[in-house]
Amino acid sequence: MNGTTSSIRVDLQLIADMVEPGSRVLDVGCGDGALLQHLWKTKGVDGRGIELSQTGVNACVRNGLSVIQGDADTDLKDYPSDAFDYVILSQTLQATHNPRTVLDHMARIGKRSIVSFPNFGYWRVRSSLFFIGRMPVNEKLPHQWYNTPNIHFCTIRDFVVLGREMNLHVERGLALNGDGLRLGLDPAGVLANLLAEQAVFLLRRSHTNER
């Protein structure tokens, strides 16, 4: 991961594209730090990370990234309000205990939030439930229901409704296929909820929600 890394996972690239150069970023659940490294190398972003797995944290710090071992559910409360330009939660929302609280903290800590998550309304998921009557297990969702870290799946529609309830304004939304490629659908629409395997949202606190 050293040197000028410019190629990262497509969905991470889409997130990176939403970030202004030179901004302050907190990546919650930053994994091995691929996105942070990319943001630093290509956009000069002042990035920090929180990662649950010690292996991930150590890999990040070995690569010179500022990352701490921590839990999205418990450790976001420590951060002061408006400390970052962006708080990113990439493919982690569904693994948190209290997604709403996590999103609330993200909106408080960052001027903007970027959230990506798998869509449980995707037609293959629906058909697994409908035709086979079992929780979906596939390449993207490899866990059985009893050992999955993903305890709070939602559909894109669920997410959009929650965002509205929380007074989070959607600045951008992208409906993506399994490879992270854009589908060109209205992210809040019925088709996206059926055809998109995952989604990315750039959110901003509505003015009514400023604190």
Binding site: D46, R48, Q54, V57, N58, C60, V61, L65, S66, V67, I68, Q69, G70, D75, D78, Y79, P80, A83, F84
Partner: peptide, 18 residues
């Protein structure tokens, strides 16, 4: 200490070594 540093948005890394 890490929590205190987070509270002031300091630039901090923290690793626990096995």
């Amino acid at each position: 200490v890490v929590h205190a540093l987070n509270a002031v948005a300091a630039n901090v890394s923290f690793v626990e070594i096995e």
